[in-house]
């Protein structure tokens, strides 16, 4: 018998996942207060929030494959929250950049985004995340219509790719971690392509299937 949570269990589960998703930031705050972030705390915070943005993107993208593979449909109920936590970490990451890296020097920031490819792609990824976060509510799904909503939310793959490139281009030499993210996010994209092929509807419009706003 597969675990099939009751509505009340779903609420408890969501609460648990919500708290768990706050652990990375709570850890940073604790380390900061204990002055234990190392010699360059700003770099440590920037790296960590960027890393977790990519991690939450990958976790969010993994929900559907895992759900189908293990037959756990209720996992879908957690996906929106996970996606929003990716956005949350991206916001913290971007705020640190604006504040502690650039000190709200607007001309400097504009020049930085225009001139530095790794900043350009990181910024593009962040900008593309905004419409996804804005349209994450049930009301927005209804307003957009399932088909358009799903088409819009396919942007998440572009965001994942841009995020990986952003990471790849900023490391000095050791690309191990960006490579791992590239493999994970790439595999999740391939999994989805393979599934669509297997469904025997290679050219079928996205809206032909049930949208998954969960």
């Amino acid at each position: 018998m597969r675990f099939q949570p009751t509505p009340r269990q779903i609420i408890a589960l969501k609460g648990f996942v919500f708290v768990a998703c706050l652990v990375p930031v709570a850890r940073l705050v604790t380390l900061f207060l204990r002055d234990a972030l190392g010699a360059n705390p700003i770099e440590a915070i920037t790296r960590s929030t960027g890393w977790w943005t990519l991690a939450f993107l990958a976790i969010t993208l993994a929900v559907t494959p895992v759900r189908l593979l293990l037959g756990l449909p209720w996992l879908l109920r957690l996906r929106r929250m996970l996606g929003l936590f990716a956005f949350f970490h991206a916001c913290v990451h971007f705020t640190i950049y604006l504040w502690l890296d650039q000190f709200f020097d607007v001309p400097g920031i504009v020049a930085d985004i225009a001139k530095r490819p790794f900043v350009t792609v990181g910024f593009a990824a962040f900008v593309l995340l905004v419409p996804l976060a804005v349209t994450s509510t049930n009301a927005m799904v209804r307003r957009l219509g399932a088909r358009r909503w799903q088409r819009l939310h396919r942007l998440v793959y572009a965001i994942g790719a841009l995020g990986v490139v952003h990471f790849w281009w900023l490391v000095k030499k050791d690309v191990t971690e960006p490579l791992i993210f590239a493999i994970v996010i790439g595999a999740l994209l391939i999994a989805r392509v393979v599934r669509r092929r297997a469904d025997g509807r290679p050219g079928a419009p996205a809206g032909a299937r049930r949208p998954e706003p969960g």
Binding site: A39, N40, F103, R116, L170
Partner: peptide
């Protein structure tokens, strides 16, 4: 090629 060298963060300082 990938970042500016105009400023630096002195370890222990918040501003650049």
């Amino acid at each position: 090629p990938r970042w500016s060298q105009a400023k630096e963060r002195r370890i222990g300082e918040w501003t650049k």
